[in-house]
Nucleic acid binder design. Structure first.
Lengths: 230, 230
DNA sequence: CGCCGTGTTGAGTAGACTCAACCCCAGTGG
DNA sequence: CCACTGGGGTTGAGTCTACTCAACACGGCG
């Protein structure tokens, strides 16, 4: 039984990120242990260990999903590793849009890490990187005004959703409501800030969810400015 | 040459957390590779890998230290592991008060992790735990009002600074200014919120930096309430 | 004693929040 | 074919509160 079409697609997806540095046998073990899960929007991810293949997965925190905080975003190729953590039932992984993930039993990942040292190294590097990104996000939340956070977010999304292209046109991978919660503001405020950005000509919208960056320079300089800077 | 007084102290410090699960030889290797560094307040930690022994280390992010964001706090027994990360020169580790750390060369930690599998496991667990705490902090910043964040912070600090005692009386391990930046508010706002808490009788101050929790229940219920909850 | 770092208080403003109404569009069913 | 419906998004008006800037209080130290 040869590799299925899906497996081939996964291999090519993982080929250009850190995963590709791993020995072939290691990747095979991971693929063999995992199952591909299709998620509709707002579906909760079963399990707490996975690799994102398509779409965006959000880490929600709060009793009620409808008004929970969005604390982190996982894009394709990202590793989700939330086992071994105190689970008081308030953390959930939810698909922001229809998504596809490679779900892994925590035990399978641990076994593979034990067997393949490079995999263990890669996992540690990724988790460290995620912690770093979270610190950066905290810095934005505590030190930047809403419009600056928005500009920063748009640049980030444009880079990760279109890593090969010119990064000027891209799809917003989630609802306004979820964007607003991730950015720590109200949906109405987000809407007004987007409107303001449109007015300056820095961005434009082809459709409500398809954005074009017209003036990356302006956006970057907005993203860089701190709250109390002139 | 037997262990110095300091080394004995370190061993007892690490004895009651996850570190104690490690084999003795592993701890010895780490201790041998590290150097104990004394830091005065506002000193920048040289290197990017360390274990906190005394005091609190803050992760700052921003060009200018004076108005950088405080993104994370490291308490005694915590592992600081910031190597391998994109270092654009805007991340710094600073002592919030006079502190003592066991500074390790990144290469030494890597070597020890390679040699001792349990250490590698422990490091991964700790980094995952830190990422989890950061997500929790993000949730607070995006979803809670300043007074709720303050209540939550005080409970947290009381637990980590006095893990053995009754956790009702403790030292605030940093300046108001740094607390405010960590909590995403202005020093003036923080001052007013503390004043408000004092007025309710939930807390009291023996000295400006020595706090007593008078009514933990009230504080906990404050910390739990979300922004838009009644 | 005066200085400096730190923290608090006061007054005024700007900006995010709240609540409500409205728009737009895709899906649905008569 | 078209009214109906509901989710998602935007707009508007008013309120509230955190921010800003300035002055002041306090304690340690030269």
């Amino acid at each position: 039984m040869g590799p299925t079409v899906e497996e081939t697609a996964i291999r090519s997806l993982l080929a250009d990120s850190g995963w590709s540095q791993l020995p072939q046998a290691c990747l095979e073990d991971v693929l063999a242990a995992g199952t591909i899960v299709q998620l509709a929007q707002d579906d909760v991810l079963p399990g707490r260990v996975a690799i994102v293949l398509q779409g965006v997965i959000g880490a929600f925190r709060g009793d009620d999903l409808a008004q929970a905080a969005v604390t982190a975003l996982y894009f394709p190729r990202d590793l989700i590793e939330l086992d071994d953590l105190p689970d008081d039932g308030v953390d959930m992984l939810v698909a922001m849009r229809p998504a596809q993930v490679l779900s892994l039993p925590a035990s399978a990942l641990h076994a593979a890490m034990h067997k393949h040292a490079p995999l263990a190294q890669e996992v540690l590097t990724r988790v460290k990187r995620q912690a770093h990104d979270l610190r950066e996000h905290v810095a934005e939340l505590t030190g930047k005004a809403p419009e600056h956070r928005l500009a920063s977010f748009l640049i980030w999304v444009s880079e990760v959703t279109d890593p090969t292209g010119d990064q000027l046109s891209f799809e917003l991978p989630m609802r306004r409501y979820d964007m607003a919660r991730y950015l720590g503001m109200q949906p109405e405020t987000l809407s007004r800030k987007i409107k303001a950005l449109l007015a300056t000509g820095a961005i434009s919208l082809r459709t409500p969810s398809n954005m074009v960056i017209e003036d990356r320079e302006a956006l970057v300089s907005l993203a860089r400015s701190a709250r109390r800077a002139a």
